[in-house]
């Protein structure tokens, strides 16, 4: 490949803005988080002492952290399974009806543009114990809804709002994936006398597996990080920590509790977790490319 080889300074001029921003707002903070994780700051900010892995062991041993991990997994599984299953169903239906797939895409795509916090507030209104139309309907079947009091209901609210937003993203990808499947394959299966149900599970679904996997990772990342807005705007981690995810805990311990060492240690653990997820995704995608 030909390149501009004789220009020695130009590439550095081109790279300078990005490198500068990344150095100041990414590497320097990341390095500080790493460093901070090994220190304990005294409450008055007068000094700090090096404590080896104390912050990590303290975090990992704390029941609150285990609880937050549980909440995170619950949100992750709930959002991923709910949003993906619903999106796949709708994408299959939209792909089936010859006319209108694009119209349905337009009608279903817009929640993606809605901020997680906004999604939370919208659904909070529907579930408002006094005014909410859904809570009113639930009362009709004997469910007393108040997410300010009941932890599991608060968790459900967060998951429902997140599914509502994340579904559209999954729908776009599933529909694109379905439309990319060569018609001739399905025709061959139809000639081999496979019924629609069978055709879906033996041909369509396996061919969609790269998309499914990609979405699984993306939905997990969403559930981990971006639900922060939804949670903070609706339940603020409550009641009693029922919706306190790992990221929310980093925020609470750091910003509100000002326990910097613990917050940093949690950040580092999260970094490792995300790094792992990304690595899995890269490896998987690489393998897929050869297939």
């Amino acid at each position: 490949m030909t390149t501009f080889d004789n220009h020695r300074v130009t590439p550095w001029i081109l790279l300078a803005p990005q490198l500068l921003v990344v150095a100041v707002f990414f590497f320097w903070p990341a390095f500080q988080a790493l460093q901070q994780a090994f220190y304990v700051e005294d409450p008055f900010g007068l000094g700090r002492s090096f404590v080896w892995f104390d912050n990590f062991t303290r975090v990992l041993a704390s029941p609150e952290y285990h609880r937050a991990l549980g909440v995170t997994v619950a949100v992750g599984v709930g959002v991923a399974v709910g949003a993906m299953a619903l999106a796949l169903l709708l994408a299959v239906l939209a792909d089936r009806v010859i006319r209108g797939a694009r119209v349905y895409r337009s009608l279903l795509i817009w929640p993606y543009a809605v901020a997680p916090a906004v999604a939370g507030v919208l659904w909070m209104f529907l579930f408002d114990p006094g005014l909410g139309i859904v809570s009113h309907l639930l009362a009709g079947v004997g469910v007393r809804w108040d997410h300010h009091l009941h932890g599991d209901q608060a968790l459900a609210l967060v998951i429902i709002a997140s599914i509502w937003k994340q579904m559209s993203y999954n729908f776009v990808f599933f529909l694109a994936g379905l439309q990319a499947i060569p018609r001739s394959l399905l025709e061959a299966a139809a000639i081999d006398a496979a019924g629609p149900w069978r055709r879906f599970w033996s041909i369509t679904f396996p061919l969609l597996s790269p998309t499914t996997f990609f979405l699984l990772v993306m939905n997990s990342v969403y559930a981990f990080f971006e639900t922060f807005g939804t949670i903070d705007a609706t339940t603020a981690g409550g009641p009693g920590g029922a919706t306190r995810t790992l990221v929310y805990k980093v925020y609470e311990d750091g910003v509100i509790g000002y326990d910097l060492g613990s917050s940093a240690a949690q950040s580092v653990i999260l970094m490792l977790l995300v790094g792992l997820l990304t690595l899995i995704q890269f490896r998987y995608v690489e393998r897929r490319v050869q297939y």
Partner: peptide, 9 residues
């Protein structure tokens, strides 16, 4: 690494 993980520093 999204900004959420390195928010404090």
């Amino acid at each position: 690494l999204p900004i959420e993980v390195r928010i404090m520093p």
